[in-house]
């Protein structure tokens, strides 16, 4: 078994505030890992450090079992909390650009753009300007941009925020499909019904991973009905 992402003993602080305090995280190949926790817990920072966009004060990160290189990014799809799209361009041109810098060419690229647009339900809006997109459409296009080069590893920061339940469900169907094709996904989320769909979850609170495991095991271990309640127990409160 290989480990697509491995972070060991990560520390990070901004000025006086400690954001990550000895966080270790190892993803197994082909799993969906949910990173949950209240806002400000350090989820985004952890994802960015695993990705190499930020440097941890100390600790070690490995992508595909080696120190990160540019080539590793070819197998990696990243979606940030912000939509990170070019507003002046059409949806197609956005996808085309992101596919190009990932090294895709010609007919393969074109076909792949159409496929990925279909999978997020934007196949009829490709010619539109991104500036005219609604918030949900932008979110889906942003996701499509992370998928377009068929990476093996996805780091998705709040991919479903602001989406209506119907689209959210179809997005999760997509995640399961990607998983079935062997992809590894780490996803941060607030939404609890999404937590149940993850293979494993990590509970991040104030810079610590306070609990980790399959959602069902966690609820059994702490004797509570939802993963949310695990937080309350850990904070010393009765659910």
């Amino acid at each position: 078994m290989t480990y697509p992402v491995k972070g060991e003993h990560l520390y990070k602080h901004y000025k006086k505030q400690v954001v990550l305090d000895d966080v270790s995280l190892t993803l197994r190949e082909g799993e969906i890992y949910g990173l949950i926790g209240p806002s400000g817990a350090g989820k985004t920072t952890l994802v960015r450090i695993l990705l190499g966009l930020e440097k941890a004060d100390s600790g070690n990160v490995e992508l595909f079992e080696q120190t990160p290189t540019l080539d590793a990014f070819r197998s990696l799809g990243y979606m940030a909390q912000s939509d990170a799209l070019y507003n002046e361009l059409s949806a197609y041109q956005n996808l085309e650009f992101f596919a190009s810098i990932q090294g895709m060419r010609g007919k393969e690229k074109k076909q792949r753009i159409l496929d990925v647009a279909k999978s997020v339900g934007l196949e009829n809006d490709l010619k539109k300007n991104v500036a005219q997109f609604s918030g949900g459409m932008r979110r889906r296009l942003s996701l499509a941009a992370a998928l377009v080069h068929e990476p093996r590893l996805y780091l998705l920061d709040e991919p479903t925020v602001g989406l209506d339940p119907l689209i959210r469900r179809s997005i999760w169907t997509l995640f399961h499909y990607l998983k079935s094709k062997g992809a590894t996904i780490i996803v941060t989320t607030h939404v609890m019904d999404e937590v149940a769909q993850c293979d494993r979850v990590g509970l991040l609170s104030e810079g610590h991973i306070i609990a980790q495991g399959a959602p069902k095991e966690l609820t059994q271990e702490f004797g509570v009905s939802t993963v949310e309640d695990v937080f309350l127990i850990k904070e010393g409160m009765k659910p």
């Binding site: 960015r48 966009l53 990014f73 940030a80 912000s82 990170a84 992101f98 810098i101 941009a145 780091l155």
Partner: peptide
């Protein structure tokens, strides 16, 4: 807008 981050997370 975060597009630079996306570029940074690509092999460019």
């Amino acid at each position: 807008t975060g597009t630079l981050d996306r570029l940074m997370a690509s092999p460019i």
